[in-house]
């Protein structure tokens, strides 16, 4: 009898756990797979690239192998003006493609069929590089966003697209989200406004298709600081962001956010070394009231992590 109980018990554990796994994993998967990607979802997936955390292409989580987002005001091939300007997502040769490009099922059934029939996304190749953009099509009277492989449909080559945009219109969004991940901003900030009064202050909560292809989603759970999902709609000043990241107490004396001055690296935009010790000394004198103004925040260099982070905040979090 005792041995039977033992076998029965083990079977019972397996059965019960199997049932709970079916309910919590198998059944919801039908809902997940039917989620149609929205414009926001496509923008996130294409600008982020394959994944933000640890991966083969980026084992040290430094933002390697991420696409660039460019703002185009003229066509890279024909030179015609584009008004209003559009976003294009540039994957230089060797950059791993975004998850929904590799696995179009992640787009949801309608967006997938549009993306393949009209957007030609199944022709994208990691080895040759690719340029994507987001287009719209009418399906049964409704407007649907779908990804388009512009390097095939419009003949936008990687080099021409980057040259047309220039550095001032290039946004390091993929690298910026990686900085958000690795500096773990999401321990204090959420990317998930709540369904209560939250949306009046922090904006609308995400829709079901707003994160298709995003990895990780970084919702955050512990909100020690404001929600950031739509922060760039509330404050789009690059200079404010710069001061706030260098030392949050410069713009908000009561903030408990850490200083992220180390994201500036060693040199400023002119290549001159940044003297952090001197800066802190002058700042401390300002805090004590010995001088009237705080020291100037150094201008960040072109390839710094802080540029990528601010690029991501101002481009993605609208």
């Amino acid at each position: 009898m005792a041995f039977q109980n033992y076998k029965l018990g083990c079977a019972g554990i397996g059965g019960m756990l199997g049932l709970s796994m079916s309910i919590t994993l198998f059944f919801p998967s039908f809902d997940f797979i039917s989620a149609e990607s929205t414009w926001i979802g496509l923008d996130k997936a294409l600008s982020n690239g394959r994944t933000m955390g640890f991966s083969y292409e980026d084992p040290l989580v430094l933002g390697w192998g991420k696409p660039l987002t460019v703002i185009l005001d003229k066509d890279p091939k024909t030179g015609e003006a584009i008004d209003p300007p559009v976003r294009a997502y540039v994957y230089t040769p060797g950059t791993p493609l975004a998850s929904p490009i590799n696995h179009p099922n992640n787009l949801g059934p309608t967006v997938k069929s549009l993306g393949i029939s009209k957007g030609m996304i199944d022709q994208a190749s990691k080895a040759e590089g690719a340029v994507f953009t987001i287009s719209y099509a009418d399906v049964d009277g409704e407007e649907w966003a779908y990804p388009e492989l512009a390097s095939v449909t419009r003949g936008w080559s990687v080099d021409a697209t980057l040259a047309t945009a220039g550095d001032e219109n290039t946004r390091y969004v993929g690298k910026g989200k990686t900085v958000y991940t690795t500096e773990q901003c999401w321990w204090c900030h959420t990317l998930l406004p709540e369904h209560t009064q939250d949306w009046q202050v922090f904006g609308w909560p995400p829709y079901q298709g707003d994160m298709n292809g995003e990895m990780p989603t970084s919702f955050g759970s512990d909100r020690k600081a404001p929600d950031l999902l739509h922060v760039a709609s509330r404050n789009s000043s690059r200079e404010w962001m710069m001061m706030h990241f260098f030392n949050p107490r410069l713009v908000q004396p009561n903030s408990i956010m850490p200083r992220f001055d180390y994201l500036w690296g060693k040199n400023d935009v002119n290549g001159d070394p940044i003297d952090y010790a001197k800066w802190r000394k002058e700042y401390n004198a300002y805090r004590k009231g010995e001088v009237a103004y705080p020291p100037e925040v150094p201008e960040y260099g072109r390839d710094t992590e802080i540029r990528a982070l601010i690029d991501w905040v101002l481009t993605s979090l609208k």
């Binding site: 394959r50 998850s99 992640n106 995003e214 990895m215 990780p216 989603t217």
Partner: peptide, 15 residues
């Protein structure tokens, strides 16, 4: 999700 690059809501939920 990390091993098989499962993304989006699936990743958020599995976290």
């Amino acid at each position: 999700p990390e091993m098989f690059n499962l993304t989006g809501l699936t990743e958020g939920y599995l976290t």
